[in-house]
C-alpha cells in the first residue's frame, strides 16, 4: 500500500470516530428538553437534575447508540456485499436482506414467539436476513452483470414486503398500521440498553466474520477466477460474508427495523479515501454509517411534524438520490465488474 493512502485512511478513521462521538453527544443535548454540554455532563454523572439523568440514560443515549450501531452494521454489510459481489449498488436494503429480516421479526412478534422467549425477535430477524443473503450468494456467481443482481434484489424485496403485509394481516395478535410502518421504514425511537444488549452481540459476531474476509475482498477486485488463482478460498469467503452480513443486517433490523440505503452511501463516500480497495473500505464504511445514522436520527427528531419522522424515511431521502446517481454514472466511474 502506498504511504499517503495509509495516512489518509488513518486520518479518515480518526475523523469518523471523533465525529461519531460528537454526534452521539449532540443527539443527547438536543430534544424537547435541550441541554447544554455542562447539563449533559451533570446528567450523565447523576450530579444534576434527576429528570435529566433519566432522559439521558433511558431515552437519548440508548437511542443515539442504537442509531450508531445500526448505521455501522449497515455500512459494514454494504461494503462487504459490494466487495463480494463486485457491485457498487449492492447493499442489505437494495438486495432485500433487510425486508426479509423484518419478515422474520414480524413473525416472531405477532405470532407470540417473543412473549415466550425474548430473543426470538433477534433469531427471527437473523434467519430472515440469512435466507436473503443465502439466495443472493447462490445466484450471484452465475450472474454476469451488475444489473441482474439488483433485479434479483428488487424481486426479493417485493416478495419480502408482500409477505410482511400478509403476516401482519393474518397475525393472531392485533397490530397497528404504525407497527408495520416501523418495521418497513425503521426507527430507533424508545430503544433501551436491554434492546441493544440483545442485538449488539449478534451484530458484533457478524462484524467479526466480515472483517476476517478483508484480504479476500481485496483479491476479488480482480474477479473470481483470478482471486481463485491467487490462492483465495472462494467458498469460505462467500460463506463468511453471507453469514456475517446476515447476522449484522439481521441484528440491526431487530434493533431498528429495515433502514435502507445507508449501506450504499457510506462505502461510496469512503472509497476515494482508501484508494478504491474494498477490503480497506470496510472499517471506515462502518464508522461513516454510524455517524450518518446518528445525524439522520437527529434530523428525524428535529423536523417539526405531528408524527415523528421515521429514521428510515430520512435515510432513504438522503440515500435514494445517491443510489440513483451511482446507478446513472456506473459505467463512467467503475471498471468492468
Amino acid at each position: 500500500m502506498t504511504g499517503p493512502i495509509k495516512q489518509r485512511r488513518k486520518a479518515l478513521n480518526s475523523l469518523l470516530i471523533i465525529g461519531g462521538l460528537l454526534a452521539v453527544l449532540l443527539a443527547c443535548c438536543l430534544g424537547e428538553t435541550p441541554m447544554r454540554p455542562l447539563d449533559l455532563l451533570r446528567a450523565m454523572t447523576g450530579s444534576g437534575d434527576p429528570a435529566n439523568s433519566v432522559i439521558i440514560w433511558s431515552i437519548r443515549l440508548p437511542r443515539a447508540l442504537a442509531a450508531w450501531i445500526v448505521g455501522a452494521a449497515l455500512g459494514l454489510s454494504g461494503a462487504a456485499l459490494q466487495g463480494l459481489l463486485r457491485n457498487p449498488l449492492a447493499e442489505p436494503g437494495v438486495l432485500g436482506v433487510s425486508v426479509w429480516a423484518s419478515l422474520g421479526a414480524v413473525i416472531a412478534i405477532y405470532y407470540g414467539l417473543t412473549s415466550q422467549f425474548a430473543p426470538a425477535l433477534q433469531i427471527g430477524a437473523v434467519l430472515g436476513a440469512l435466507f436473503a443473503t443465502g439466495v443472493i450468494a447462490l445466484v450471484a456467481s452465475s450472474l454476469g452483470d451488475t444489473v441482474s443482481l439488483i433485479l434479483i434484489g428488487v424481486g426479493l424485496s417485493s416478495l419480502g414486503g408482500a409477505l410482511v403485509s400478509l403476516a401482519l394481516n393474518l397475525a393472531p395478535n392485533p397490530f397497528t398500521l404504525n407497527d408495520m410502518v416501523s418495521w418497513m421504514m425503521g426507527s430507533v425511537a424508545n430503544r433501551s440498553f436491554a434492546d441493544i444488549g440483545l442485538s449488539g452481540p449478534i451484530i458484533a459476531v457478524g462484524a467479526a466474520l466480515i472483517l476476517a474476509t478483508r484480504r479476500g475482498l481485496s483479491a476479488l477486485t480482480l474477479g473470481e477466477e483470478t482471486a481463485h488463482g491467487l490462492g483465495l478460498d472462494l467458498v469460505r469467503t462467500r460463506l463468511l460474508v453471507t453469514v456475517g452480513c446476515g447476522l449484522a443486517a439481521g441484528g440491526s433490523v431487530a434493533l431498528a427495523g429495515a433502514i435502507g440505503f445507508v449501506g450504499i452511501i457510506t462505502p461510496h463516500l469512503v472509497r476515494p479515501w482508501v484508494g478504491g480497495d474494498p477490503g480497506r473500505a470496510l472499517v471506515p464504511s462502518a464508522l461513516a454509517g454510524g455517524l450518518l445514522l446518528v445525524l439522520a436520527d437527529i434530523g428525524a427528531r428535529l423536523v417539526p411534524s405531528d408524527n415523528e419522522l421515521k429514521l428510515g424515511v430520512v435515510a432513504a431521502l438522503i440515500g435514494a438520490p445517491v443510489f440513483l446517481w451511482i446507478a446513472a454514472n456506473r459505467r463512467r466511474n467503475w471498471g468492468s465488474a
Binding site: T2, I5, R86, S218, T221, L222, G223, L230, G335
Partner: peptide
C-alpha cells in the same frame, strides 16, 4: 493469468500488482 480480467474497483496500479 486468466482470460477474463475484470477490474471491479478503481484501485491503483501498485495495489493491483500487490495482490
Amino acid at each position: 493469468l486468466p482470460q477474463s480480467r475484470p477490474m471491479a474497483w478503481p484501485i491503483s496500479v501498485q495495489d493491483a500488482v500487490a495482490l
